[in-house]
Design a protein around this nucleic acid. Structure first.
Length: 273
DNA sequence: CTTTGCACCTGTTGGC
DNA sequence: TGCCAACAGGTGCAAA
């Protein structure tokens, strides 16, 4: 489900729902692991802690409390919701019970997500955060950076912009959409992308992510904002999920192939770079 | 070091 | 209608 826009949408929704004075009364783990083990002392370390805020780094959510940071990745199917009494579902793995009686529930059917703890101030040393590249919406993600980072790389440019060590937050949907908007073939060797093309691509990644955030993310199957609303950026997809259909710009039939194990759709006419 | 392929899971969808 | 294969928003690891 979640690439940067969806994670950011979840973050904003949670912040709005929580307000200023949310305090964790109790944490209940329904299982000991997702893909990786969940720290067994996680409930004890978070019990009684006020939630100071929630940040996002890459596709991770960082819940700040004085004692510890709750690090959460949504994987493919992770969701947070405010669960009404009695709203218990399969795959509800972690419950945060607040002192005001509300329950925040992490649900993740495929269990590709993660829940972990980080000591405050130690974020940059955490193995899952240590090797991340720049935020695509930050000033240090520039064409010059992307150009330099891709020199000598033969892998497809789409694979590399989905590589979280190059730039974070871009997944299969937004990689395809950004490459279309930049006029670059997904399979082009990254090391041969010109600086001019990098300029277009950096701009396209920014534009598409910002537009998707403004739209509340993309709802495919069951992604929901914290308030339960669907995102609506899926209506702005120009190539993702449209193989075999006509290009919105030139009516050429969109092609599909697999790159790095991921389905890729593109227009052979509009994407020549 | 880079690249590739697959494993990790469950749920949904589409073809026969 | 029913069954089963293929596929899905991500990452991490092994092997080449």
């Amino acid at each position: 489900m979640p690439e940067l826009p969806e994670v950011e949408t979840v973050r904003r929704g949670l912040v709005a729902v929580l307000g200023k004075r949310a305090v964790i009364a109790q944490v209940i783990l329904r299982r000991a692991d997702l893909r990786a083990p969940i720290p067994p002392d996680l409930p004890r370390r978070l019990r009684g802690q006020p939630i100071l805020g929630i940040r996002r780094r890459a596709k991770y959510l960082l819940w700040d409390t004085p004692a510890a940071i709750l690090l959460c990745h949504l994987g493919m199917t992770g969701t947070w919701r405010v669960a009404a009494p009695g709203d218990d579902r399969d795959h509800d793995h972690c419950l945060l019970e607040l002192t005001d009686g509300r329950r925040l529930v992490y649900r993740d059917p495929r269990r590709f997500g993660c829940l972990d703890l980080v000591s405050p101030g130690a974020e940059t040393a955490h193995p899952r955060l240590r090797d991340l590249g720049p935020e695509p919406l930050a000033v240090d993600f520039t064409a010059a950076y992307l150009h330099a980072a891709t020199r000598g790389r033969r892998a497809p440019i789409k694979t590399l912009i989905m590589d979280q060590a190059i730039v974070v937050g871009v997944g299969n949907i937004y990689a395809a959409e950004a490459l279309f908007r930049a006029g670059i073939r997904p399979g082009a060797a990254a090391g041969r992308i010109s600086l001019a093309a990098c300029t277009r691509l950096v701009a396209a990644i920014r534009t598409v992510l910002e537009a998707a955030i403004a739209a509340g993310g993309s709802t495919i199957s069951d992604f929901r904002q914290a308030g339960g609303d669907a995102g609506y950026f899926q209506h702005d997809f120009r190539v993702y999920g449209r193989a075999g259909q006509a290009c919105v710009q030139c009516a050429t039939i969109l092609r599909e192939s697999t790159l790095g194990g991921r389905t890729s759709v593109w227009c052979a006419t509009c994407q020549r770079g």
